[in-house]
Design a protein around this nucleic acid. Structure first.
Lengths: 348, 348
DNA sequence: TGATTGATGTAGAACGGTTTACGAACCCCT
DNA sequence: AGGGGTTCGTAAACCGTTCTACATCAATCA
């Protein structure tokens, strides 16, 4: 029964020879295609098991099926992206697709190289998370590979789908919450993109912040500061804000990650949160719950976003050609860092 | 000059036709192989640029070169793994290799499936970070694909390389530091693996902890508690430790991530760090520096580990067959969470 | 009984690259 | 002019699958 082929590598031909059938028959069994008798199937499956045969994805890919979807993340330091990946994994659980992740280190050039690498690999589809690349580049990619964007508003796109949180509403929720808690002088520590073309998401949240401030009659207090997402830059921006002569009563931060830096700087400067300064983050990552942070945040449930994105992508791979744009509703989770202001007790 | 092929897809044949040369000639140029005149090369390169041709990795992979290395991470919530990835990226910077990441969600079964998926893809090599799988499974994998392990001591392995921090020393450093700061009742909150076979890394650190405690004459205070890495489990374990009748003076935690949970629980119970409880983490992730955590930790410089792993892997891909085992020296970074005990001032 | 149908299995052409084996052209020497 | 060695370029096989088109055979139908 043992095969004494010259070659050690087990291919579909080895299996065919072992089972005494044709290569095509084995292929049919593998794809459980039409026209296979119960007898043939069991015979082939026995051979596969005996030889420990595994079809090679590269060879399959040459015929179009890669069974792989690529996820492009800006970085993996931000736990929000973990939530997204949880959702993606959940959606892919019972499918034949595997997800493989590329990390662009938030760099525009690496991102482009990675997208190319992934389409060349090839992948059946791509999920781009908060991409830095231009809409034109996304379009080019989408022309070759089914594509879904997360965290990148592009409501008029027809060639790819988008999955987003309603960022404008999220910002409004924050302002509304802080105002209700007695804060009026509310600054927004926003994100500076390296690529000037892509202010889309940024502006959504900034638009919401501005609009809400105006509606509450606080237009005089509007103050938007932008910093890159790095710890150093965030700290520097926070220090500038808090040491300026007009220290704000509250800071709304682009991301929990940045908010944690703000909390640290506040402590360094001897400020007490929330008595001297309220802080609100975004994403409601697991760190918010830790009591040393106790950080109010906006939950945009990354899991749901990831799940939807994966679902839409699979639909697209299966042939859908019309665009879908999913918008989730954010939810504010209040914690200690924005507790209502005690009625004007002055410092201490 | 324009080609009017029926097919829209640009392959090596399209390029060959456009440049008026053979397919093999184009392939030679692509791989800058021997036997290409300057004239031919420039002509082909012009065609490639004009047509925007990109070789497909899947087709290449069939002949052995995938130009891809796979990294398997248990999860991406732990920022220590980000450090490792930074190192990997740095090492791969100027090479032709792309890294693609698979996330096993710390689950043994997913991990196995992912490794299979990656070898099938195929990848030129694999970096397995803190794998849960058995040494036997690793061996099987290494037989098919060059493999390097990070965070998994296997000093006698010959088929694959390992990159590790000296975990035993790391644990000793912690105990030594705490003892010097006046703490004697030191508990170790360690990690429980789902797979009972793999206690290798765990035991290294536990061995170091035990040995150091004994050497300091504190064998009566040895107390090892194990919990899975999840936030919930860590919290529960911390609560049990801190609410027990013999509350330890210090807790040494498997990971910063877990230490942060301990800090949170301590605060919840009204304990003051470090007056009532010292806490030490492991990995020296960026969160340690935040003043609300101010967490003493052991730096095992993930960047270096990642860098070395990628370097060793490339060497192996290029043909090295002897095993190398890299061991980095950890460094203790003292912060507020383990400040020296004030001379017996009792509670408050 | 011959034609039609349906089920099952096979041969062989893709897919898009790499690589081997070899031919043609050119150079330099004697 | 002929022999020997480079250099440049080509044709064709190969990698491991999928998939189309077709062959075979038994059962059913008119």
């Amino acid at each position: 029964m043992t095969i004494s082929q010259k070659n050690a590598r087990i291919t579909i031909r080895t299996v065919a020879a072992d089972a005494g059938v044709s290569v095509a028959a084995v292929s049919k069994v593998l794809r459980n295609a039409y026209g296979v008798s119960e007898d043939l199937r069991s015979r082939v499956e026995a051979s596969i098991a005996r030889l420990g045969y595994r079809p090679r994805a590269a060879a399959r890919a040459m015929r179009g099926q890669a069974d792989t979807i690529g996820v492009l993340l800006p970085d993996i330091r931000n736990p929000f992206f973990s939530d997204i990946m949880d959702g993606v994994h959940a959606a892919l659980e019972r499918t034949r697709y595997q997800s493989l992740v590329g990390i662009s280190q938030s760099a525009w050039s690496i991102e482009l190289a990675l997208v190319d690498a992934m389409t060349d690999r090839p992948m059946d589809g791509l999920i781009l998370v908060a991409p830095r690349m231009s809409a034109a580049d996304v379009t080019v990619t989408a022309l070759r590979t089914p594509t879904v964007l997360i965290g990148h508003h592009e409501p008029d796109a027809t060639l790819f789908d988008t999955v987003n949180d309603d960022d404008e509403l999220g910002a409004r929720l924050v302002v509304g919450h802080l105002v209700a808690a007695g804060y009026t002088d509310i600054a927004f520590l926003s994100l500076a993109m390296e690529d000037p073309m892509n202010l889309v998401v940024t502006s959504r949240r900034e638009i919401g912040y501005r609009a809400a401030m105006v509606e509450h009659g606080l237009s005089a207090h509007i103050d938007i500061v932008r910093a890159s997402g790095s710890p150093r830059a965030s700290q520097a921006a926070a220090r500038r804000l808090l040491q300026g002569r007009q220290r704000p009563q509250a800071i709304f931060c682009w991301t929990d990650f940045i908010a944690l830096e703000v909390l640290s700087v506040a402590r360094e400067l001897g400020l007490c949160v929330p008595r001297d300064l309220a802080v609100v983050g975004y994403d409601n990552t697991s760190y918010c719950d830790l009591l040393q942070n106790d950080l109010t945040s906006v939950d945009q449930s990354g899991q749901v976003l990831g799940l939807q994105a994966a679902r839409l992508l699979i639909e697209r791979i299966k042939g859908r050609t019309t665009a879908e744009h999913f918008l989730a509703t954010p939810r504010l989770v209040a914690r200690g860092s924005s507790r209502p202001r005690s009625p004007e007790r002055e410092t201490l």
